[in-house]
Amino acid sequence: MREDRQVLSETLDDSVLIGQSLDEPESFAALFDRHADEIFRYAARRLGPELADDVTGEVFLVAFRARSRYDRAWPDARPWLYGIATKVIAQHRRAERRRTQAMAKVSPERPGGFDDRSADRVTAEQLQPRLAKALGRLSAAERDLLLLVAWADLTYEDAAVALGVPVGTVRSRLHRLRVKARRALGGIDPFAAEEPQHG
């Protein structure tokens, strides 16, 4: 019987699971199983692995407590969870700032050999300190948006839901971020390979 319930929960979309958890709180665990690894990876990239476990736990605790307010018109809870993660991460912003400053101080080391390493990787390593400095100069809102799109791979629409802003605001902020990033990196566009996201 328990296995049947687990198989059923794996086929339900997130909004149904959240609705179901209002009467059966234990069914919220399926949402955790589905998305915790992704939220952990995002938190680890933002704050480092030492804080990622705490952030992930906090995100799902906040989500569980707020589940009755979830807009069930959205079948995928990822944007909602990333929105919560963004707020929890903001509480840990000092640690993120220290990590970004440390990254900016690290000088890129030249690899010993170029056997299987691509030129793209070497270029990215050389740009890392400059990129870290540029990230450090962004406002919290700009940094949150950039990292939701770049690291969490959210669409513009999902990022708008996560941050609670119109999609037009996401588009205009990202345009300004491109200009700032190009200026900080001496004319190199770190988004050049990206396809614009529509839909």
Rank of each mutant, 00 (worst) to 15 (best):
2 R>K: 07
9 S>K: 09
9 S>E: 15
10 E>H: 02
13 D>I: 07
16 V>P: 02
17 L>S: 09
19 G>N: 14
20 Q>S: 11
21 S>C: 15
22 L>E: 05
23 D>F: 02
25 P>I: 07
28 F>V: 01
28 F>H: 00
29 A>F: 00
30 A>F: 01
37 D>N: 12
40 F>I: 00
43 A>Y: 07
45 R>I: 04
46 R>V: 12
47 L>V: 08
48 G>S: 10
51 L>M: 13
63 A>E: 14
63 A>Y: 12
67 R>Q: 10
68 S>V: 13
68 S>P: 10
70 Y>G: 03
70 Y>P: 04
72 R>P: 01
75 P>S: 14
80 W>T: 08
81 L>C: 11
82 Y>P: 06
82 Y>F: 15
82 Y>K: 07
87 K>N: 11
88 V>A: 05
89 I>G: 10
91 Q>M: 12
93 R>S: 10
94 R>Y: 07
94 R>Q: 12
94 R>A: 15
97 R>G: 02
97 R>Y: 00
98 R>M: 15
99 R>M: 11
99 R>L: 14
102 A>S: 15
102 A>K: 11
102 A>L: 15
103 M>D: 13
115 D>T: 02
118 S>E: 15
119 A>P: 03
121 R>L: 13
122 V>M: 08
124 A>H: 10
125 E>C: 12
131 L>E: 11
132 A>S: 15
136 G>K: 04
141 A>C: 01
148 L>S: 13
150 A>M: 09
151 W>M: 03
163 L>M: 15
164 G>V: 06
169 T>D: 12
173 R>A: 13
175 H>Q: 09
178 R>K: 09
178 R>F: 00
183 R>D: 14
183 R>I: 01
186 G>D: 13
188 I>F: 11
189 D>V: 04
190 P>I: 00
190 P>W: 06
192 A>C: 08
194 E>T: 02
